[in-house]
Nucleic acid binder design. Structure first.
Lengths: 230, 230
DNA sequence: CGAACAAGGATTGTGCACAATCTACAAAAC
DNA sequence: GTTTTGTAGATTGTGCACAATCCTTGTTCG
C-alpha cells in the first residue's frame, strides 16, 4: 500500500472520472474558465492521461467543458447569448414535461420530490449554496424522470447543467432565493395531479429564475475586444 | 504515392472521421446494428485506432452509436419506446421553433430553404431514398438555424439524426412520401412571415410523419425474453 | 524605450505495444 | 446426447513515448 495513494482503485473508469469532475463543476467548486490540465487530473486520480482525455471529451459533448485545439480543456463559460438560449429551450421543454409528470405521478414519486426539497433546504441552511444550486437542478431532472421521457430528460439534464454554470456567472446577489417557494408549489400541483397548474407554475418559475440573472451585454465588451484581434 | 492508399491525408482529424461515419449512417449506408470494428475503420481511413476511438465516442454521445463495454461499437438501434420519445420531443421543440423562424426569416433564408427542397426532389427522382431522408432532415435543421437558436438547433439535429435511424427501422413501405408537400407549405408560411401558420403546419407535419411509422410492440417480445434471463 | 524575434519549457496530439476481456469452437465428462 | 470446461483467436482497454503545437520569457535591434 502506498502512503499517499491519490484516490486509487475502482474509480479508474471513464464514467467514474467524468462524474467526479462533473460533480465538482455542478457544485461550483470549479469556476467557469478554470483550466483542466490533463497531467494534473491524471496525477490527482492516479491514472493515465488516456482516461482523463476520454472523460474530458465526454464532458465536452455534454457542454460542461470547452476544448480548444492544442490549447486544452477549460470549464465552460457560457456567453450571455447562450444563457438566453438555454432558458429559451427550458421554456419550451419543461412546462409540458411538468404537465406530463403531474398526470403520471405516483405517491412514491411525490415522496421522492419531497425528499429532494428537504435536502435542498438542508444544504441551504448549511450555507453551501453551490450544493443547493446542484440539488435545485436535480429537482427539475427528477420531474422529467417522473414524466417517463428519457430523451427529454437527457436534454433537460444538459440544460440544467449549463444553467448551473450560468448561475455561477450571472447571478444577482440580491433577493437570495426565488426558488424554494416555487418548488413547493410545484410539488403540490403534481401531488394533486393538476397538470394544467403544474405547467403554469413551471412557466412562471422559469421566468422568475431568469429574472434573477443579469443578462445585460456589459461583460461582452472585453470579450469582443480580445476576439477582434485574434 | 502508394497504390491503394486508403483515403490518406487531410481527413485525419477526429471531427473529419466522425463526420464521414455520421454521413454514412444518415444516408442509410450503414444499417442499424452494424458492428463498427476499430481496426477495420482505422485501416479504411489509414489512421490509428486512437482517432477512430475518439470519433466513435463522439458519435456515441450524439446517440448515433451504442457502445458496450469490451464488446465494441454498433450503429444505434432505437427501440420502439425511444422512437416514441423522439417524436414526443420533436413535437415540443419544432413547432415553436418554426414559428420563430417565420418571424425572423430573411429573403436569403427563404431562398436557402427552396434550394433544400430542390435537392431533396433531385435525390428522390434519382431513386436515392437514403439521401432523400437525410436532406429531408437537414431541412428541419435549417429551420432551427433560421430561428437563430443554436442550443435548440443542436437538440433538433440530434433528434433528426435519430429519426433517420428510426425511419430506417420502422418505416411503412406504403404511401411513399407524405413529406414533400408539407415542406412546400412550410416554406410558404415562413416566406409570408406567418408564424402561427408555420407552427400549425409543423405540428401536423410531425403527426403525419409519425403516422407513417409502424410503432406497434411486436418486435419487443423476443427482446424481453433475452433481457428476462440477464 | 518599444517591438519584433528567437529559444526554451510546457502541454496537447497521435501511434503503438501490451494487458484484460470476450466469443467461438472443440473436447471431455456426465 | 447434453452440458460443462478449456483453449485459441480476436477485439477492446490502457499506459507510454515521441512528435507537433503553443505560450512564455529573454534578447536584440530599430
Amino acid at each position: 500500500m502506498s502512503v499517499t495513494a491519490p484516490e486509487r482503485a475502482h474509480s479508474a473508469t471513464i464514467e467514474g472520472v467524468a462524474a467526479k469532475i462533473e460533480l465538482a463543476i455542478l457544485d461550483h467548486r470549479l469556476a467557469p474558465g478554470t483550466k483542466l490540465t490533463e497531467d494534473e487530473l491524471a496525477s490527482i486520480y492516479g491514472i493515465g492521461r488516456t482516461i482523463v482525455r476520454a472523460a474530458l471529451q465526454s464532458l465536452t459533448h455534454k457542454g460542461l467543458v470547452e476544448t480548444q485545439r492544442n490549447r486544452g480543456a477549460f470549464v465552460a463559460k457560457p456567453s450571455i447569448r447562450e444563457a438566453r438560449e438555454v432558458f429559451e429551450a427550458r421554456a419550451l421543454l419543461e412546462p409540458r414535461t411538468a404537465q406530463s409528470a403531474a398526470e403520471r405521478a405516483r405517491p412514491s414519486d411525490v415522496r421522492l420530490l419531497h425528499r429532494h426539497i428537504k435536502q435542498e433546504h438542508a444544504a441551504l441552511d448549511a450555507g453551501n449554496t453551490g450544493r443547493a444550486v446542484y440539488l435545485s437542478g436535480e429537482f427539475h431532472v427528477a420531474i422529467a424522470r417522473i414524466a417517463d421521457q428519457t430523451t427529454i430528460e437527457h436534454f433537460i439534464y444538459q440544460l440544467i447543467a449549463r444553467s448551473s454554470l450560468i448561475i455561477a456567472l450571472y447571478w444577482r446577489r440580491r433577493d437570495a432565493l426565488c426558488e424554494s417557494h416555487a418548488h413547493h408549489a410545484l410539488v403540490d400541483a403534481i401531488a394533486n395531479g393538476d397538470g394544467a397548474r403544474a405547467e403554469e407554475l413551471m412557466t412562471s418559475h422559469l421566468v422568475d429564475l431568469r429574472s434573477c440573472l443579469d443578462l445585460s451585454d456589459s461583460p461582452a465588451a472585453p470579450k469582443t475586444l480580445r476576439e477582434a484581434l485574434a
